[in-house]
Computed example of a mutant assay.
Amino acid sequence: MIEVTKYRHDLPQRRGGIFLTDGGMETTLIFHEGVDLPHFAAFVLLDSPKGRQKLQKYYAAYLAVARAHGTGFVLDSPTWRANSDWADKLGYDAAALKAINVRSIAFLEGLRAGWERPEAPCVISGAIGPRGDGYKAGRMDAAEAEAYHATQIAAFVEGGADMVTAYTLNSINEAIGIARAARAQRIPAAISFTVETDGRLVNGETLREAVEAVDRETSGAPEYFMINCAHPAHFESALQAGEAWTRRIHGVRANASTKSHAELDESTTLDAGDPRDLGRRYRDLRRAFPAMRMLGGCCGTDHRHVQAICDAVLPPRALSA
């Protein structure tokens, strides 16, 4: 049964204003909360009351920051690993995987119902991750990627998500396939690339080449693009103010650490970086690229980093009497 959605045909973040997101879900749960996440998969927490309580507590910290600053929020489902290759490793068959992707949206609906206000919209996004490792080059062509990711997108459509967002993509072909699959199912999609320390995708393509290729091959299907899972120091130089393609990048979810992906892969401790420095870098990005209005974090960040971003980017709110 297809659920009625709230914002699928009119995403409020497309009309302007700042929208926050959460931060590094998996790193926060593992290193701060001591949660065991096999294969870095947070979606498994949806299968137990205790796990759902952990997720609710996690999201609540970010929603509180957004409430304090009067911003909107994009709630991403905990399903970055909830595709068939990773599900196979975790013992989920196709039916169980579909069910948990559908239920992930219902879980977020419950959070939205208790938080949203007319002046602060809350958009529910089904989160998609790469088929393989986000730090290693993907090998699918666009047609294979479209067919592969269509199943998870269909579950989000059935669950009633407002949109889908594909995170930590390092393959242009995979991004094209996801954008086409979402368009075929009439759900808005955002595409978020990750880059190496040189500001390029793992195979050497520039961000400009990636964004322009996806737009060209999909007739501009994505609602917008984002950058995630890299520190701003890694991609600031790849962005040139005034170039038309940069106006397609509407969001940033940066890492706390300046370490490379290879260094992070080998690390057994959490590098939380410098939240204030991260906030200043977001402020500078916003000044140079005002279209960037979805602001959050990725690996190593938690609600304190998002608070620091708000402190740097947003004007102070007047205290109510």
Rank of each mutant, 00 (worst) to 15 (best):
M1I: 05
E3C: 06
V4E: 04
T5S: 15
K6V: 07
Y7N: 12
P12A: 02
R15S: 10
G16N: 01
L20Y: 13
L20W: 12
G24N: 14
M25D: 11
M25H: 09
E26D: 08
E26Y: 00
L29K: 13
L29A: 14
F31W: 14
G34H: 11
G34R: 06
V44N: 06
L46I: 12
D47H: 12
K50Q: 15
G51T: 07
K54W: 00
K57F: 10
A60K: 14
A61E: 15
Y62L: 14
A66P: 03
H69M: 06
F73S: 04
F73W: 04
F73V: 05
F73A: 11
V74D: 05
S77D: 10
W80P: 04
N83L: 04
A87E: 01
A87R: 03
D88I: 00
K89M: 13
G91I: 02
D93G: 08
A96H: 12
A96L: 04
A96Q: 14
L97N: 05
K98D: 14
K98V: 00
N101P: 11
V102C: 06
V102W: 07
S104P: 13
S104Y: 06
I105Q: 06
I105S: 07
F107T: 08
F107Y: 15
L108T: 07
L108I: 03
A113V: 08
W115E: 15
R117M: 13
R117D: 11
S125N: 05
A127T: 03
I128G: 03
G129Y: 00
R131W: 02
A137F: 01
A137E: 08
R139C: 03
A142Q: 14
A143T: 15
A145Y: 12
A147D: 14
H149E: 10
A150F: 02
A155C: 11
V157K: 09
E158S: 14
G159S: 05
G160S: 05
A161M: 00
A161K: 02
D162T: 02
M163A: 11
M163V: 00
A166L: 10
A166C: 14
T168W: 02
N170C: 08
N173A: 15
N173H: 14
G177T: 01
A184V: 03
Q185H: 09
Q185L: 05
I187K: 03
A189N: 13
A190H: 07
E196L: 09
D198G: 12
L201T: 11
L207V: 09
D215M: 09
T218K: 11
T218G: 10
A221N: 09
P222H: 05
Y224H: 08
M226T: 01
M226L: 15
I227F: 09
N228Q: 11
A230Q: 05
H234M: 01
H234P: 03
F235S: 10
A238G: 11
L239P: 02
W245P: 00
W245H: 08
R247I: 01
R247F: 00
R248D: 07
R248T: 01
R253P: 08
A254V: 05
A256L: 12
S260H: 04
S267H: 08
L270Y: 04
G273N: 03
G279L: 07
R280T: 02
R281C: 05
Y282Q: 08
R283K: 15
L285Y: 10
F289V: 01
L295C: 13
C298M: 08
C298D: 11
G300E: 08
D302Y: 09
Q307W: 00
D311R: 11
A318K: 07
S320K: 12
